[in-house]
Design a protein around this nucleic acid. Structure first.
Lengths: 235, 235
DNA sequence: TCATCACAAATGGTATACCAAAAATCGGAG
DNA sequence: CTCCGATTTTTGGTATACCATTTGTGATGA
């Protein structure tokens, strides 16, 4: 009857998205940047007021973050930034390495030459940051490269799973406290990754990425993060 | 200071969980059982009333389902049961096969003998259902076996990702309209899967599971589902 | 006859109010 | 001084009311 059965995503001009989703986004960045620390309670009234929104969309945002695994909802006891044990991080890295490995494989099949060229360009920018020992931009470009490889696989579901797990780990990888040796090794691995991608060697790229992501485990500064122990700010 | 930093999950006696989560569960089953068809609108007032809840927790449930990928939220235009194109299903199956492949690999490392024995038992029950040509219980046991293998990997994140994608595909696999030949092949694959699991041969099990899940693609009765075309009930 | 504009009805989005459960505090008894 | 318990206060959960946006419908004019 009515002819409004159009594409769910691309609906002409974009209406600004839901307030709850905007709030979820803001909270995500607050968690990623450690403005909200693991174990810290998210008091609805106070936080909602600070963000200048009402409690209703704020609580909806909490439900979203709970699905994301970023906060934990204790029934009748409120929301808490999810605390990950060392084992949790290990498990998530295991899954992430498999996801990225598959992404590399698929990227070799589905990526356009232009996409690969763009990733190569980012790689060179990353090398520049490495030479300058600029840890911050190195980290950012590094993240962008991994995301770009996953995007180049042209699989939305894969991308979603990657984003979700990556977000959960973000805070734990952010601290760029890698020593120079490990750093150099990572650069080396990236070099080979880019080569395999350019050659569209899916099998080898897959293996390389899996190993590369898995090795992140050893780069994490466990002491600095005090994992599996609650680090909420005491009032 | 305060000694209430206990395990997030196991908190003594269970307080019944959030109403929003209960609603999400009910909606999930409604979607899985086709009580709500892809493309169908979820009108807040009417549905919330039918479920005998207020709009507030109902809307929170919608946000959860949106994160799950089961419904799509059109800003200012309400919620719709997500409709998957044939390509979407293909992509999700690709990811699922990788997930299950890795699960098999990890299960060989981490599963207890008891867990494997239980899976073997389920396998035999499934064979019984096959002999009786009882599609319904065959399907259920089949699902249970796959879930059990993933659970045996002892990786919560892996389990969550599996559940999430599996739920999105559930409706599209439910129609047990496999012809007898394909069915027999599936049984054969399961036989080998059980063997490899019992032998804890991770590499081969991984490959078998990947192939087995991927082949689901060919089992889907596309015509019956009319994919990539909206099938909402016309009012 | 068809398109278009305006108006009306319905639907979704947000804020507020109210209720229940849990934690903190304070007081009393041992 | 400490432990237990009642009371208060805070916080989370749910329902309802109100506002904005959208959509369906009917009238008007080309």
């Amino acid at each position: 009857m009515n002819g409004e059965e159009m594409d769910q995503d691309a609906a002409g001009l974009a209406p600004r998205d839901l307030l709850s989703q905007q709030i979820a986004l803001r909270l995500r960045t607050m968690i990623a940047t450690d403005a909200l620390k693991p174990g810290e309670r998210l008091r609805e009234r106070t936080l909602a007021e600070r963000l200048d929104v009402s409690r209703t969309p704020f609580r909806e945002a909490l439900k979203i973050l709970e699905s994301d695994g970023l906060v934990t909802l204790l029934p009748n006891r409120g929301a808490v930034v999810t605390v990950l044990s060392a084992r949790d991080v290990q498990e998530k890295l295991d899954v992430l390495s498999v996801i990225e490995g598959f992404a590399g494989h698929q990227a070799c099949l589905n990526a356009s030459e232009q996409e690969i060229a763009e990733i190569r360009a980012q790689h060179h920018e990353m090398l520049a940051a490495y030479e300058r020992r600029d840890r911050q931009t190195y980290f950012n470009i590094n993240q962008a490269i991994h995301a770009a490889i996953v995007a180049a696989a042209h699989n939305r579901t894969l991308e979603n799973v990657f984003r979700q797990i990556n977000r959960q780990l973000f805070r734990y990888r952010y601290q760029g406290s890698v020593n120079t040796d490990i750093w150099h090794t990572a650069i080396d691995e990236h070099d080979r990754i880019i080569q395999m991608l350019s050659a569209r060697d899916g099998e080898n790229l897959s293996d390389l990425l899996r190993a590369h992501v898995s090795s992140t485990w050893r780069k994490i500064d466990w002491d600095a993060l005090s994992l599996s122990r609650n680090t909420a700010t005491p009032p």
